[in-house]
Amino acid sequence: MIGQQQSVDCNVKSGTRKAVQDTPSQALSDALVKVATSRDRKAFAYLFEYFAPKIKRFGVKQFGNEAQAMELVQDTMTSVWRKAHLYHHDKGAATTWIYTVMRNASFDALRKMKSNKEEHISEDIWPIIQDSQTDDEGFKDHLQTAQIQKYINKLPPAQRDIVKGVYFQEMSQEQLAEHLNIPVGTVKSRLRLALQKLRAELGDQA
């Protein structure tokens, strides 16, 4: 642990990632989306068959015994079943998402072994949904008033469609992008601009 643990630069290595041909990435991602959207048990069985034995192997290495490894399989795959709707396929591979779910479960289990406390601190350290626009969420509650409707109607049409889609029709940014046939990045930037304008209009009320 002791030693120079801090570094004065941050270089992201690029081009070193090689595609792993053995991983059926698309099929896994599709299965995870099916679990989320239609509680598809066949898709879950496919994920389970693929991941559970590998999670168990990881658990045996991590904890040194089979019983705890099985607990890790249970914790991880339960989260996969119950939290699949939090997975966004445009943010990364299903394998990466499930790895982070497993890592979190394993971290909490190791802490439980050490401190004998049941806690889920991993959710604070590595939130499963990483939404950089979290501060927009509080804003959502206020959006129902007539006055805000008025301001929304004054927005440029392109921005207005996005705001209405996200807040009133409750579409995801991905769905909207598909619906309007524009990139997700454009949806995000239009939404950001629109919210900035609304905040400016509303001043301190928001």
Binding site: V12, K13, R17, V20, D22, T23, P24, Y50, F51, K54, F58, G92, A93, T95, T96, I98, Y99, T100, M102, R103
Partner: peptide, 15 residues
């Protein structure tokens, strides 16, 4: 993010 991807394919790559 890159490290998570790398770790994930390490653990989960064999088909």
């Amino acid at each position: 993010q890159a490290l998570e991807e790398a770790k994930a394919s390490q653990q989960f790559s064999d088909a």
